[in-house]
C-alpha cells in the first residue's frame, strides 16, 4: 500500500512518520510512536477513550485515518497535558477530586476537558456534561469528573489556551 509522509507537532515535539493513509491514527500514536497513554475502549467511536486534540479539536483517534491528519498538525495527547498550565490544573483536579477510578477512560476524558476549557473556561456543569457526553466512564457515575472540571475551570489561567 502507498504510504504518505507526515510531519506533526505532537505534544510540542516534531514527529516525522511514513504511514499507510488508512492506518488508524490511534495505532500510529500507540504502536508507531509509543504514546500508549491514549486508549482503545471500543474501536468504533462510542466510548471516547481514544480522544486526542488535533489543531484544537477533540477527535476520536480510533475513527481517524492517519492520512487525514494534516501536515504540521498540532496534536495533544494525554502525555502532553503536563506541559501546559491548564493541563496540569486538570490533572491535579482530577486526582484531588477522585475523578479517576480505574483510569482507563481518563486519558480521553481529560483530553476532552482540556479541549473544552481551552475554548471556554466559563463552562457551567450543564455545558461540561454536554461536552463530555461522548466520553463513557463505567466507574465514577461522572459526578467527581464534573466536579474536577469545574474546579479546574475556576482556576483556569486567564487569556490563555491553557
Amino acid at each position: 500500500m502507498n504510504k504518505v509522509k507526515r510531519t506533526w507537532q505532537i505534544n510540542g515535539e516534531e514527529h516525522q512518520t511514513e504511514i499507510p493513509p488508512v492506518r488508524r491514527f490511534l495505532d500510529v500514536l500507540r504502536e508507531d510512536l509509543g504514546l500508549k497513554g491514549t486508549k482503545e475502549g471500543c474501536g468504533e467511536g462510542e466510548c471516547g477513550a481514544c480522544t486526542v486534540i488535533v489543531n484544537g479539536e477533540a477527535v476520536l483517534s480510533c475513527m481517524l485515518p492517519a492520512g487525514q491528519v494534516p501536515e504540521n498538525a498540532e496534536v495533544t495527547t494525554v502525555e502532553g497535558l503536563e506541559k501546559t498550565p491548564g493541563g496540569r490544573l486538570l490533572q491535579a483536579a482530577y486526582a484531588e477530586k477522585g475523578a479517576a477510578q480505574c483510569g482507563f477512560c481518563i486519558p480521553g476524558m481529560i483530553v476532552s476537558s482540556y479541549a473544552m476549557l481551552s475554548r471556554d473556561p466559563s463552562a457551567d456543569p450543564a455545558r461540561i456534561r454536554e461536552a463530555h457526553a461522548g466520553n463513557i466512564c463505567r466507574c465514577t457515575g461522572y459526578e467527581k469528573i464534573v466536579e474536577a472540571i469545574q474546579s479546574a475551570a475556576e482556576q483556569w489561567p486567564a487569556g490563555t489556551k491553557g
Binding site: 486526582a95 479517576a100 483510569g103 481529560i110
Partner: peptide
C-alpha cells in the same frame, strides 16, 4: 495511583 492515571 491517581498521578499515573491522570498522566496516562
Amino acid at each position: 495511583d491517581a498521578d499515573e492515571k491522570v498522566r496516562g
